[in-house]
């Protein structure tokens, strides 16, 4: 393989090159580089404050970077003249706190963006809502309000809302951290199914067992740097003492 097989899709889907970012005097990202290829699942792990969530948020430009380069689905995210809305049509993001819109039903939560951003017709958007809700196993919750759902159901609905925009890559920012173990399982199952469907994903998680099962590649962040990276096997046989200590205490 000397050339890219498909010239219309420049690989990789996500690429960070030597990214630096500080909050005031605190350096959170100190020369971070990694790439995510099409269909790949990249799991970011590390202690609180290691910069993993910041790195993830930079991909969707929720944080701006000080130096370096980020390219996502062909969008130069680090370019100040970036078309933000075009980037965000290609990138889906799911947050720890679900962030469903409380004044809208689940169906309205899902159809809002396809209708107002993509100009999709109401009927088409409603079909789409039904499809993505079936994908996360919530087809019966179409007309309920977020507060009527359990945490796990809300998070699945939030995933469905992102899917309805048919993103090219999905970002998951500690999506199970607010859930108790019982509800965590149902959300992880949905994410596993997405991975099996070939969705490109970047996720920050503290669920080490889950990470081992789903990750094509693992990036261990430590003090704002990519400290160790490799296949999911590094979680069971880490090369650096820092990762060994992290998985030792994190399991």
């Amino acid at each position: 393989m000397h050339k890219t097989l498909n010239s219309t899709t420049p690989s990789p889907v996500v690429s960070l090159k030597n990214v630096h970012k500080s909050f005031g005097t605190l350096k959170v990202l100190d020369g971070v580089s990694f790439e995510v290829d099409r269909g790949e699942v990249l799991v970011l792990i590390g202690r609180s404050g290691s910069g993993k969530s910041t790195a993830l948020r930079c991909i969707d430009r929720f944080e701006t970077i000080d130096s370096g380069e980020i390219v996502v689905c062909g969008h130069r995210v680090s370019d100040p003249k970036l078309d933000l809305r075009a980037l965000r049509q290609d990138v889906g993001i799911v947050f720890q706190s679900y962030n469903l819109f409380p004044h809208l039903t689940i169906e309205e939560n899902i159809t809002l963006a396809p209708c107002s951003v993509k100009g999709m017709s109401r009927t088409h958007a409603k079909e789409e809502a039904r499809r993505v809700l079936a994908q996360v196993g919530l087809e019966d919750k179409l007309h309920q309000y977020p507060e009527q759902l359990s945490g796990g159901q809300q998070q699945r609905a939030a995933i469905a809302r992102s899917l309805a925009m048919q993103p090219k890559v999905m970002l998951f920012d500690e999506v199970t951290s607010a859930l108790d173990p019982e509800l965590t399982g149902e959300v992880l199952k949905v994410i596993e199914a997405l991975a099996a469907d070939g969705m490109t994903m970047v996720m920050v998680t503290h669920e080490m067992g889950f990470a081992r099962g789903i990750a094509d590649r693992v990036v261990f962040m430590h003090r704002g740097k990519v400290h160790e990276t490799g296949l999911a096997t590094i979680l069971t046989s880490p090369a650096t003492p820092e990762l060994a200590q992290f998985v030792g205490t994190g399991l």
């Binding site: 929720f62 933000l84 809305r85 889906g92 947050f95 004044h103 809002l112």
Partner: peptide
């Protein structure tokens, strides 16, 4: 986070305002 969720869905500033923030 309501703003962020709306931003993440590629809604424009005026759409975020009229459809997500103002109703609340």
């Amino acid at each position: 986070p309501q703003w962020e969720a709306a931003e993440g869905l590629a809604l424009s500033r005026s759409q975020r305002m009229t459809k997500v923030i103002l109703p609340q």
